[in-house]
Nucleic acid binder design. Structure first.
Length: 415
RNA sequence: GGAGAGGUGACCGAGCGGUUUAAGGUGCACGAUUGGAAAUCGUGUUUCCGCAUAUAGUGGAACGAGGGUUCGAAUCCCUCCCUCUCCGCCA
């Protein structure tokens, strides 16, 4: 989390950032609180000092076998006022911390008030017939069953069946293998549940509490992205420059409540409560993070390029940036059936924001400082599946399997 | 779920109510020595907060987390978390 002095010294900048990211925070209230905190802290420190000095004398007297009763009486009087002030300081400190927890990460200067197309749309196909939607294809081919999923769990869940289930599993394996072999990642299979502290470290909390599933008895959070477990692997660590970069890649199911988003956009697989995703997380030296951001974009794009799906890349405007991100590219792939561009990957540089919260540091010379973290989806399957089946459909309503997936699948088409 | 042992600085490890200003070691940084290195010697080496004559000053806080007892807690008590050993349950 931000150090309080840093907040004091960058208050204007942080205020502007919060406004740009659409988080309304009362900085005037904070300034007032902080003044109060400082003055209280001064008084408490002074009383502690007096207590410590006199306390030492009590020890001396006792060792010499003299009577410390008088001093002890004085200290008892001191204690009364002190306890109250300590309590007040503690409360105000908590308020200050709660405020700081809501301040989002600073925004990189290259980020604008509108989105920028970083890679022009490529690879859109010409169909000689009207392409069907994944919902129509999925149901007619019996590979997606939304009704069964809602019977089991509820609306906006999906069940993959038969060749659909095989295809989903193949996609995950294909992506993992790609990143491990071609991009030198270490594969991780993490817990799908995480504790509150982990959620705070990566910046899901405090803002996204309502978007997450929480287990009732133990207060665990179902992870909304593998970014959370993968980043927290190194929480509390101090690394040396030679350890870096560290590249972790992992598959998890991702769980999102998607509170408040209903309607047309949520039809089919476009927005579901549980989806599969392969995630890439990098830990790097601060100087290198913006170069690595470009590398990560290319690594994620490799999945799309190998599957020969139409894509474009957008640099997000500042009001679309997540709480923790300084700069983000979105990879979108085109789905001709629903006629939409679908976000399948966010590629973000968090600079030292998460590293500060998770206390992931690097020791350079004698100095210990937070490193930089980045992540990219590599990529999310639900929407990847949509684009894939809509792009690879034939006029006969069948789906061809792209060549790179054939090693993972024992059939060449679904139909 | 039950019983026991433990959690101390970057790491190991002592301390078990007031000479802790957290011993000692390792590592690290800087310096000396060297043709250069190793070894050796010397100095330094946590974080956060307050005040200030504001890089060298001064005071406070932090020994898994949170409470409590006490004039005073790393040290005693309670709750919780985590690690290890054993038992139970279980895919």
């Amino acid at each position: 989390m931000y150090n309080i002095k840093f907040v004091e010294e960058h208050i204007q900048e942080l205020k502007e950032t919060s406004i740009k990211k659409g988080i309304s925070l009362e900085f005037d209230y904070f300034i007032e609180l902080n003044e109060e905190r400082k003055s209280l802290k001064g008084r408490v420190d002074e009383l502690h000092w007096i207590r410590n000095e006199k306390g030492k004398k009590v020890g001396e007297l006792k060792r010499r076998g003299e009577d410390p009763t008088e001093l002890i009486d004085e200290l008892e009087d001191l204690k009364e006022g002190l306890t109250q002030l300590e309590q007040e300081l503690k409360e105000i400190q908590k308020k200050v911390n709660d405020f700081i927890a809501w301040i989002p990460n600073l925004i990189h200067p290259s980020v604008r008030d509108e989105s920028i197309v970083v890679r022009e749309p490529t690879g859109i196909r010409d169909f000689s017939f009207k392409p069907l939607t994944h919902i129509e294809l999925g149901e007619s081919l019996g590979i997606l069953d939304f009704e069964a999923a809602s019977r089991i769990a509820g609306s906006n869940f999906v069940l993959y069946k038969g060749k659909g289930a095989v295809l989903e599993r193949a996609l995950v394996n294909f992506m993992l293998d790609l990143h491990i072999k071609r991009h030198q990642y270490t594969e991780i299979f993490p817990p799908f549940l995480a504790n509150e502290e982990s959620m705070f470290s990566t910046g899901q909390l405090p803002k996204l509490r309502d978007d997450m599933y929480i287990t009732e008895r133990d207060g665990f959070f179902l992870n909304p992205t593998a970014e959370v477990p993968l980043t927290n692997i190194l929480a509390g660590s101090i690394l040396s420059p030679g350890d870096l970069p560290i590249k972790y890649c992992g598959y998890t199911a991702c769980f999102r409540r998607e509170a408040g988003s209903y309607g047309k956009e949520t039809r089919g697989l476009l927005r579901v409560h549980q989806f599969n995703k392969v995630e890439l997380v990098n830990f790097v030296l601060p100087d290198e993070s913006y170069r690595v951001l470009e590398d990560l974009l290319d690594e994620a794009l490799d999945v799309i390029k190998l599957l020969e799906l139409p894509y474009r890349v957008i640099q997000l405007p500042f009001d679309d940036l997540s709480f923790a991100s300084a700069k983000t590219y979105d990879i979108e792939i085109y789905a001709p059936g629903v006629d939409k561009w679908l976000e399948v990957s966010s590629v973000s540089n968090f600079e030292d924001f998460q590293a500060k919260r998770a206390e992931i540091r690097v020791r350079i010379g004698g100095e210990t400082k937070p490193l930089h973290t980045l992540n990219a989806s590599g990529v999310a399957t639900a929407r990847l599946m949509v684009s894939l089946i809509e792009n690879y459909q034939t006029e006969e309503g069948e789906i061809e399997i792209p060549e790179p997936l054939l090693p993972y699948i024992n059939f060449e088409k679904i139909g």
